[in-house]
């Protein structure tokens, strides 16, 4: 490793601090409160979470010369038409992303990402709720096993799992060879928005199922029995009792699917074949390819604000954050 003196300083400083604080924590003086134990963590979080966030803020509001500017945000709305032209040159398919040749790339990408995330969330909810409901049924003995079956796929590297879809969806992939065998025409399954959506649903579906399953399986059976005792039929019992009580699970399911969906990164590149781009890819490209930290930071900041807003909105529905504990 070649390190600057400053870098070495930082490493040595944090190392010494870590050891010192832990040693200190163990030898606490009796009068000292146990809260001293959390001080290494506090220092760590300030160094590696709070300071980096401030750096994003710093870059977002400065230009290349380090002067204060709002340009980075102005650019966001006011588009880089030039960039768009370049994108077309690079082979991006504007139609695929529902873009027009006019307007801001960033705004278009953001709208596209939000649409995709929304679509993904709705599909996950529609697929996941019935699944969770069926698994959480107390009479169903296999329920806990099936839930573990939902966790296991997540251990396989997510990049490889996504790439594995390529083998299935390709023009000469497994699905199409099956179609040919059956004498059916080949389908164009890859490199489009549908494929990206499929990849997203595939990756995020378990995150919808867990919290809903949690909320449903915690429910007191007697509540349903009481509803039926009071004359509700099966549908009304579900609609008036089971469903409203599973709301915290639904809310945290939506949070856990929607948040990562918006910033999806990599999936569009593989399954969309570079025809589409989502906000995560845009941020990555702005930093690493376009090498523009200031605009990249501004984009990240917007992303965070968006996410914080959605979270606080969702917190209002589920103030306890109850369903959130899938781990």
């Amino acid at each position: 490793m070649n390190l600057s003196p400053f870098g070495i300083g930082l490493i040595v400083f944090s190392g010494v601090l870590f050891v010192f604080l832990i040693a200190y924590g163990f030898k606490v003086h009796h009068g000292m409160h146990r809260s001293i134990f959390s001080s290494p963590y506090t220092v760590w979080m300030i160094l590696f979470t709070v300071v980096p966030l401030f750096l994003i803020g710093y870059y977002a509001f400065t230009d290349v010369n380090g002067k204060f500017t709002l340009e980075n945000f102005a650019n966001f709305w006011d588009s880089n038409r030039e960039m768009k032209r370049q994108l077309i040159g690079m082979g991006f398919s504007l139609e695929e992303m529902g873009m027009t040749a006019r307007g801001s790339v960033n705004v278009d990408t953001l709208v596209y990402s939000l649409k995709m995330a929304f679509g993904c969330t709705v599909i996950c909810l529609l697929l996941g709720y019935p699944a969770a409901l069926l698994i959480a049924d107390r009479k169903f003995k296999l329920g806990p096993t099936i839930i573990i079956l939902f966790i296991i796929p997540m251990w396989m590297n997510f990049l490889l799992r996504t790439i594995a879809w390529m083998s299935l969806l390709e023009d000469n992939g497994l699905i199409n060879s099956l179609m040919t065998r059956l004498g059916l025409p080949k389908l164009k399954l890859m490199y489009n928005t549908r494929a990206v959506l499929l990849g997203m649903v595939y990756n995020y579906l378990p995150f919808m199922v867990f919290p809903i399953y949690n909320a449903l399986s915690k429910q007191d059976v007697r509540l349903s029995e009481a509803a039926q005792d009071l004359g509700a039929n099966n549908f009304l019992t579900f609609w008036r009792v089971v469903f409203p009580l599973s709301m915290p699970g639904i809310v945290s399911g939506i949070t856990m699917v929607f948040m990562p969906s918006v910033t999806t990164f990599f999936i569009p590149r593989v399954l969309g074949g570079g025809n589409t781009e989502m906000f995560g890819d845009l941020i990555e490209r702005t930093f690493l390819t376009a090498d523009n930290w200031n605009v990249g930071s501004a984009l990240s900041l917007l992303m965070m604000v968006l996410i914080l807003m959605s979270i606080s909105l969702l917190r209002k529905v589920d103030p306890e954050g109850e369903g959130g504990s899938f781990v």
Binding site: P52, I56, T263, I283, F287, S300
Partner: peptide
């Protein structure tokens, strides 16, 4: 709650 990409980028910065 922060997206992974923001965590990654902020640390890179």
């Amino acid at each position: 709650t922060m997206p992974d990409i923001v965590t990654g980028i902020s640390l890179m910065l």
